[in-house]
Design a protein around this nucleic acid. Sequence first.
DNA 1: GGGGCGGCATGACATCTGTCATCCCGGACT
DNA 2: AGTCCGGGATGACAGATGTCATGCCGCCCC
Lengths: 209, 209
Amino acid sequence: MSTNSAGATVRVLLAEDQSMVREALAALLGLEPDIEVVAQVARGDEVLAAAREHAVDVALLDIEMPGSTGIEAAAELHAELPELKIVVLTTFGRPGYLRSAMEAGADAFLVKDAPAAQLAEAVRKVLAGERVIDPTLAAAALAGGANPLTDREREVLRAAADGATNAELATALHLSPGTVRNYLSTAIQKLAVRNRAEAVKVARDKGWL
Amino acid sequence: MSTNSAGATVRVLLAEDQSMVREALAALLGLEPDIEVVAQVARGDEVLAAAREHAVDVALLDIEMPGSTGIEAAAELHAELPELKIVVLTTFGRPGYLRSAMEAGADAFLVKDAPAAQLAEAVRKVLAGERVIDPTLAAAALAGGANPLTDREREVLRAAADGATNAELATALHLSPGTVRNYLSTAIQKLAVRNRAEAVKVARDKGWL
DNA sequence: GGGGCGGCATGACATCTGTCATCCCGGACT
DNA sequence: AGTCCGGGATGACAGATGTCATGCCGCCCC
């Protein structure tokens, strides 16, 4: 159990699947005298156990990871270790990601093309009880509105993303081919596009997929 | 002009668009006593000028960058500064990327989920005249064969990737709609898939797009 | 000079996709 | 009880897409 009192070093967990990036971020944080990276994992489903075992103060989570996403890991951490501060760090500044990260209990949301100095800064701020969110992204998330797709529409769209045909989608999802087309049709209209490919594209880069 | 003689420090240029990753990699390399990161750029089209200005020994290039790709930058460097060693570092281990990186004059090809230690090691090896390539990837590149698509097919497929309709592609590429369909049809057959969406997918993750 | 290949085009045809109207069911809210 | 919404389905229809045969041009190579 760590105390987080002034002067003590912050115990950080790093979750990121690309080793080179992960170890590089560790090196970066290692330069800060008040921060210590005490655990590194490459999969979302190893986050909770590692956080428990190493009694970490702050978890730094990438979203795109095998096993489970950083968002899911954040939700688990928030439920099991409510004291723990969570920083979500991701490649894509998708408004939907920000929204779901916050709903999962994240304290900070950073994109990887922000200056590196913001990383250590964010760690310190969340520890002080602050929340850290890129204002531009926050605006986009609020303006963009919530995900308009129903669960089923999202499922079907996700399944259709790789170019599967309607018949294949139907068998894969245990639906009638006609129903698949109906869901895709409504999704297409809700997203104001003209075919499934465009629908996949916009849903993806809003973080709705 | 640097000498690269034993004992001298290696002058490295880092090209990577995501600041956080770039600065983290710089921190990582900074830990090595014999390596010095003397220049950092975030765009492909700034690589050549920076390499000239800072008299670098090794250029470390990400592929996915705005301006121009790391591959294109590598080709420029190789033509203008043949002495310079080039390490291509990328997120995706696509065989096609490896192939074109090598054709562009790269001396090493690393994927970001290799262990971080390989980065400094690769820098030293290329400087010693060695070539560094992941054997698994090399095998895949050789087995996978060359890109079977013609220039036009690739162009059309790339343009179709975002879900544009045939008519739109036709006007965008100054072609007849029928011709667009012909190209897509041949591309679909060459890639042994059943529609444009799948064609885009497989072309993409072979690095052929 | 003939053959092959790539770029470009057309027309015909079969299938796939997207839309719409319409239906049934169950849960939630008034 | 009535209404709305989401899940699931059917059938009909128009338009988009994929295939194929065929033709023309220009280039390169034997």
